[in-house]
């Protein structure tokens, strides 16, 4: 595999990494399998499309995560918090319904047709990486994802809020007894998780095509990434997202017809070999 193909795998892995880390954060703290995460990603891409049309792609990179963070706050305050003592299958189904609502709203606003967003000026061409020409925009995606991964992990490990998030993810009741405001932490986590979905959608907009089915298409992959990583583990989700991106790219080179099966095969292998996921702890 040459350098270009490796970079292709890292670029795809970067998108999966950002998206799955948000989902893993929400699951880790709220215990919610957020089936609306794909729809949030799609909403991010559509918002990015409009903001990029009206202002610029760089404005979209800020605006879409902010709008999605606000949407995340609504999700937390209206649904997740009120449903926190309900069976998580029920909550999961509620998020599934939310995904359908979000998709419909998007179709009403933007229509059914496939849209596309141009890469920002200056990043439309290629850049030479060790002698290989590679799309500059994909390098930006990789750079943002890696910076985000490092920043997020550092923040979770070193900051006081990060400590509270890790504590609440481990045991909500004990954290509350110890004085951590779990509701506030949850609100923050769901907002960040949704914002990450918005960021992934924005970065994906010039990368793939923007269409109403894009959320559904990636949701299964992201759910698999989170399970492989160890449900609730942010680091595990990031690792699994990157690994799956590279594996899928390799698969597309060596066995294109079978590459769609790679996420499912990886899921089966990891669950047989390490049922708790790559970074999960045994229950």
């Amino acid at each position: 595999m040459d350098l270009t193909q490796l970079l292709n795998g890292i670029a795809l892995g970067s998108l999966l990494m950002i998206l799955s880390s948000g989902l893993a954060m929400i699951y880790g703290l709220r215990g919610v399998t957020n089936f609306a995460h794909g729809a949030l990603y799609m909403a991010g891409a559509y918002i990015a499309y409009s903001v990029a049309q009206q202002v610029s792609f760089w404005a979209a990179l800020i605006a879409a995560p902010l709008v999605l963070a606000a949407l995340g706050a609504v999700l937390e305050l209206v649904f997740f918090r009120r449903l926190q003592h309900r069976n998580h299958i029920e909550v999961g189904l509620v998020t599934f319904g939310l995904a359908m609502i979000i998709e419909r709203v998007i179709v009403i606003i933007w229509g059914e047709r496939t849209l596309s967003v141009d890469a920002p000026p200056g990043l439309t061409g290629t850049t030479s990486v060790l002698g290989s020409d590679y799309p500059s925009y994909r390098l930006l995606v990789i750079g943002i994802a890696l910076a985000l991964a490092v920043g997020l992990v550092y923040w979770l490990r070193k900051s006081r809020v990060g400590l509270h998030i890790r504590a609440a993810s481990h045991d909500v009741e004990t954290s509350a007894i110890l004085g951590i405001n779990v509701d506030r932490v949850s609100l923050l986590v769901v907002c960040i998780g949704a914002a990450l979905a918005g960021l992934a959608g924005t970065l994906a907009a010039p990368y793939v095509s923007v269409h109403p089915a894009m959320g559904v298409a990636i949701l299964i992959q992201v759910l698999i990434v989170v399970v492989i990583g160890g449900a609730g583990s942010i680091g595990g989700a990031m690792l699994a997202g990157m690994a799956l991106g590279i594996l899928q790219t390799v698969g597309a080179i060596w066995a294109p017809s079978l590459s769609v099966l790679i996420p499912y095969a990886a899921l089966v292998v990891v669950l047989l070999w390490r049922p708790q996921g790559l970074a999960g702890k045994r229950a």
Partner: peptide, 13 residues
């Protein structure tokens, strides 16, 4: 509320 990993997997599938 704490969920089991198996629930997540079943839900995901």
């Amino acid at each position: 509320m704490k969920c089991t990993r198996s629930t997540f997997i079943i839900s995901a599938l």
